[in-house]
């Protein structure tokens, strides 16, 4: 089977006035369709850089990114990629409906078919009654859900989440990860999620990629499998293997205070 995403020998260097910073060094991995990949690594190791290269926002210094067998053209945003940032970035002056259709508007794909798709997403995930409300009238969790629908509206094959939940308080965060996990599985999306939270990374992922300190290379890739029929981010935390995974990844991250 063809890999949905293939990252080959990726190198990222930033040129600053006071010198060169190597953020990524020889990063290679593949992602299959429907997989959920978590990426953890120390602060400032280059996780965001990695995602923004996959999204086509930043040009790699060397290496290739191949999506469905096609090499990514740097600087050109790939339409099969959806990118969710840390804050929801909903535009306060637009209604929820006009916020979630922003991507369609920009890509000139406001077809009745797409609008119906978005409307269905809003209905399925409990935001339909709020479609004419403004972001300031929504709770933090609902805002994050709206941001996810905005990303899903362009029907990306791969979803990139860069600490998408870290702006939320702990309880909302647990609820939202639960939500997002369910939505992503239901829509059968492939996802790459960057997080600082090791339990969160384990609870959602099929595989966890651990990056080293800068310049980041891949320290290890862990396959996470709980043999639970209806696994959710919350209930798998009770599984005995959860703590095991946590310890391995914690050791590998080698955090020095």
């Amino acid at each position: 089977m063809q890999d949905l995403l293939r990252v080959e020998d990726l190198v990222a260097k930033y040129q600053a006035d006071n010198g060169e910073i190597t953020a990524l060094e020889d990063i290679s991995f593949t992602v299959q369709e429907g997989e959920f990949i978590s990426i953890v690594g120390p602060s400032g190791c280059g996780k965001s850089t990695l995602l923004s290269m996959i999204a086509g926002l930043t040009k790699p210094t060397a290496g290739n990114i191949v999506i469905e067998g096609e090499p990514l053209v740097p600087g050109k945003v790939h339409t099969s990629i959806g990118y969710m940032l840390q804050r929801d970035n909903l535009l306060e002056w637009r209604t929820i409906f006009r916020n979630v259709t922003l991507g369609l508007e920009i890509q000139h794909t406001m077809t009745s078919e797409n609008i119906e798709y978005v409307t269905n997403l809003l209905k399925t995930y409990g935001l339909y009654e709020f479609k004419d409300k403004y972001p300031s009238q929504l709770s933090g969790g609902m805002r994050q859900r709206a941001a996810l629908i905005r990303t899903l509206a362009i029907r990306p094959k791969i979803l990139l989440l860069d600490e998408a939940f870290s702006a939320l308080d702990y309880q909302t965060r647990l609820a939202v990860t639960e939500d997002v996990y369910r939505i992503l599985k239901q829509e059968n999306k492939t996802a790459l999620m960057v997080t600082h939270d090791i339990p969160e990374s384990i609870s959602m992922a099929d595989r966890v990629i651990v990056l080293s300190r800068r310049p980041a290379h891949i320290q290890g890739i862990h396959t996470i499998s709980f043999d639970m029929p209806d696994r959710t981010p919350l209930n798998c935390r009770e599984h005995p293997k959860f703590q095991e995974y946590f310890n391995t990844i914690w050791k590998e991250l080698d955090v020095h205070v």
């Binding site: 999204a55 926002l57 050109k76 945003v77 339409t79 990629i81 959806g82 990118y83 940032l85 840390q86 804050r87 970035n89 535009l91 922003l102 991507g103 920009i106 890509q107 362009i154």
Partner: peptide, 12 residues
């Protein structure tokens, strides 16, 4: 806000 700019850029 640079985050909002990045957000619309991700849509191309």
């Amino acid at each position: 806000d640079s985050e909002k700019l990045k957000m619309v850029k991700t849509f191309g």
